[in-house]
Design a protein around this nucleic acid. Structure first.
Ligand SMILES: [Zn+2]
Length: 270
DNA sequence: ATACGCACCTGATTGC
DNA sequence: TGCAATCAGGTGCGTA
C-alpha cells in the first residue's frame, strides 16, 4: 500500500536508526529476493526516496533499491525471533532491519548507482503547475490514471489519487488534456497539502501498513472518500461511489466531483 | 501512444 | 459450516 507519504515516513525513520551504520549480516528468506544478500561490511551512507522506492546508498559505491509494492514494509527489530512473512533480514550491531511482505511483490535490487530514474516530478518537492499542465496537454488519459503514472508524476497511488481529486473537486474520469492551467494550480496545491498531512500522520494504515517501529499511521482518520463507498460525502452529504478505473477501485463523490458544465456532467458512463 | 486484461502472491472478507 | 468469489497499497507484460 505504501505510497509517497508512507515511504517518506520510513525513509525519515531509517535515517534515525541506520544512517552511518555497518551491515553485519544479511539473510534472504525468500528465493525471489536472492541477489540481495552479500552486503556484510558495507556502511549505509544515505537514505533517499525515489518515488515510491527506498534507496539505501552504501559507502564506497552501490545502492540497495527496495520497492515495497502492495504489502511490503520495513520493521526495525531489536528482539529475538522474526515475525511471519519476513522475507529479508539486514543486521546491524544495534538491531535488525526486516523486510516483511505477505504478498511477496516487493523487489530488492542491488546495483552500482542510483538508477537514472524514469520517474516524473514529485508533487511533494517539485510539482510546477505550468509544467504539469504542459505535460497533461499531451494526454487523453483519465486524470486519475495520469496522476498515478509514475513516469509522469512520482509517488501518487490509488488512495492519494482519490483523495486529491476529491479535494480538488475534479472527476477522476476527466481527460487530462481538458484541465486548465488553473486546475493544475489547484491540483498541485491540494496534492502538496494532502501528502504533507499524511506524512505528519506517518501514513495511512489501511489493512496492514505500519511504520518502521511497527506503529500504525493516523491518516486513515482523515480520508474523505477512499474506502467509504455508500457513506455520506463529508462535503455535500451525497453517497460516495466506487467504480473501476483502469482496474483500480476508484472512490469519488458523484455530486462534488461531477463538474457541472464539464465534459462528464450528468453522464457517469462506464 | 494508450487501453485493457492478466500475472505476480497471500490473506481477509463477503456471498451463497 | 464450507467453499468459492472478490477484494486489496503496485507494477509490468502482452495484446488490440
Ligand atoms: Zn460530495
Amino acid at each position: 500500500m505504501p505510497e509517497l507519504p508512507e515511504i517518506e515516513t520510513v525513509c525519515r525513520q531509517l535515517r534515525d536508526v541506520i544512517l552511518g551504520a555497518e551491515i553485519t549480516r544479511t539473510r534472504v528468506l525468500d528465493p525471489k529476493l536472492r541477489g540481495s544478500g552479500g552486503l556484510t561490511g558495507r556502511k549505509v551512507e544515505g537514505i533517499t526516496r525515489q518515488g515510491k522506492a527506498v534507496a539505501l546508498v552504501l559507502e564506497g559505491g552501490g545502492v540497495i533499491i527496495v520497492h515495497l509494492r502492495m504489502t511490503g514494509r520495513f520493521l526495525w527489530h531489536e528482539g529475538k525471533g522474526i515475525p511471519p512473512h519476513t522475507r529479508l533480514v539486514i543486521s546491524f550491531s544495534r538491531g535488525r532491519l526486516l523486510l516483511i511482505d505477505p504478498r511477496r511483490f516487493a523487489t530488492v535490487t542491488v546495483s552500482k548507482n542510483l538508477p537514472t530514474a524514469p520517474l516524473g516530478s514529485d508533487l511533494l518537492n517539485d510539482g510546477d503547475p505550468s509544467q504539469l499542465w504542459l505535460l497533461a496537454q499531451k494526454s487523453k488519459a483519465a486524470i486519475k490514471a495520469f496522476l498515478m503514472d509514475q513516469r509522469r508524476i512520482a509517488g501518487i497511488g490509488n488512495i492519494y489519487a482519490c483523495e486529491i481529486l476529491h479535494r480538488a473537486e475534479i472527476n477522476p474520469w476527466r481527460k487530462s488534456n481538458t484541465l486548465s492551467r488553473d486546475a493544475w494550480i489547484t491540483i498541485a496545491a491540494v496534492a502538496k497539502e494532502i501528502l504533507k498531512q499524511a506524512i505528519t500522520c506517518r501514513g495511512t494504515s489501511v489493512s496492514d501498513w505500519r511504520d518502521l517501529f511497527g506503529t500504525a499511521g493516523e491518516n486513515q482518520r482523515y480520508l474523505m472518500v477512499y474506502g467509504r463507498e455508500g457513506e455520506a460525502c463529508y462535503r455535500c452529504g451525497e453517497r460516495v461511489e466506487r467504480r473501476k478505473l483502469s482496474g483500480r477501485g476508484t472512490y469519488y463523490c458523484p455530486a462534488c466531483q461531477n463538474e457541472k458544465g464539464g465534459p462528464n456532467h450528468g453522464t457517469m458512463e462506464l
